[in-house]
Simulated scan of single mutants.
Amino acid sequence: MDPRSEVLLRQADLFQGPLLIAGAAADGLLGQLPQAQAWTWHAGDHGWLQQRFAGRSHFGVDVPEAAFDAAVLCLPKSRELAVYLLNALAALLAGRSLYLVGEKRGGIEGAAKLLQAFGKPRKLDSARHCQLWQVTVDHAPEATPLDSLAQRFELALDDGPLQVISLPGVFSHGRLDRGTALLLQHLEHLPVGHVLDFGCGAGVLGATLKRRYPQSQVTLLDVDAFAVAASRLTLAANGLQGEVISGDGIDAAPDELSAIVSNPPFHTGVHTDYQASENLLLKSAKKLVKGGEMRIVANSFLRYQPLIQQALGNCETRAEGDGFRIYRAIRG
């Protein structure tokens, strides 16, 4: 069980009424809190929870329309996202309790200070390298629209400027990361057809691909609901059409792809996790048509080349720079 869930169960008497657990982990916590419901923006966690606790998990970027008398936020990695989520929950909890739980190495002590905007916070527990805080919402804020927290920036590309719209919690929020910057320079001569931007984030690659290959169908896929929302905003800002879907890894992608382009993720929360990236590499052959191509960027220290060779039988380093490598492989 997630250590944050274990801390909540140490104080289970506080959570027996109608409760919303925001950022709930994929574990058995709901089974021990019968009136609790989960809100998550991670498609994999939502799928796991729905399978085991049907109707008690909600997925998306907005507070679900569920009845609750108190709420717990499991601290996310992004401080900007934590601010949005706490504000959204506190706006609905005037006079009631808002809880914050998180790991010490995830910054829970600093994040707990955010509760001061709503009342006088107090620490309830410290265990499992986590802390649990509570505040009675004496000063309920006005809900802040998510769009108002978007960060917009412009990329100067060879075929004209690209408008990018990023949302709190999205990878490389408000800026272009170095890996994607390198990959943007090496998108030439991709097969035309159905192209996938895997782990799309704010949609930089997907939007660029659609503009560069207008005759191709472009699908953007991410596990995170905030990334999906940001990608849709980025496509709209540039007048581009593309399918944006949420799903847990490459298994959620369409079949018969002519190309997979990605700056694959390998971090989840405060823990490092390579599973999504490794699954992408190992299962790419099942998603690509014969002659289809995978082109990805990765940190140079990641040993992805053997996995790509294992899956597709070939792999070349297309470019290297700034601590990153571009890998290219063709399905035979």
Rank of each mutant, 00 (worst) to 15 (best):
F226V: 02
A181Q: 11
D147H: 10
S166Y: 14
G179E: 00
A227Q: 11
T219Y: 06
P141E: 06
G249N: 05
F171P: 11
G247K: 09
L233C: 15
G169K: 04
G201W: 01
V170G: 15
V244H: 05
S262Y: 07
G203P: 03
L176W: 07
S216Y: 02
A225S: 13
S166V: 13
D147T: 01
G160N: 01
L157A: 10
T208D: 11
A225P: 14
S148H: 13
E154Q: 15
G174Y: 06
T136L: 15
V218Y: 01
L187I: 01
E256G: 01
V261W: 03
S246L: 07
Q163P: 00
R178F: 05
L155W: 02
G199Q: 04
A202G: 13
T180Q: 07
F153T: 04
A253S: 11
A227F: 08
L132N: 14
L209V: 04
A181C: 01
S231H: 04
S216I: 07
F198Y: 14
P141Q: 09
S166P: 13
L157N: 07
H173G: 03
L240P: 06
V192C: 14
A140Y: 05
V170M: 13
V218E: 09
D177E: 06
E243S: 11
A259G: 03
G201I: 01
P191F: 00
P214S: 02
Q151C: 09
D177N: 09
L176A: 10
V244S: 03
G179S: 01
A225R: 07
W133T: 12
A236T: 11
G199R: 07
V137I: 08
T180V: 08
P191K: 03
S231Y: 04
V204R: 06
S231N: 08
G247S: 10
C130F: 07
A202F: 00
Q131N: 12
L187G: 05
A229C: 10
Q215E: 14
E243L: 05
Q217T: 14
L190M: 07
D248W: 12
D222H: 10
T144M: 09
E154K: 15
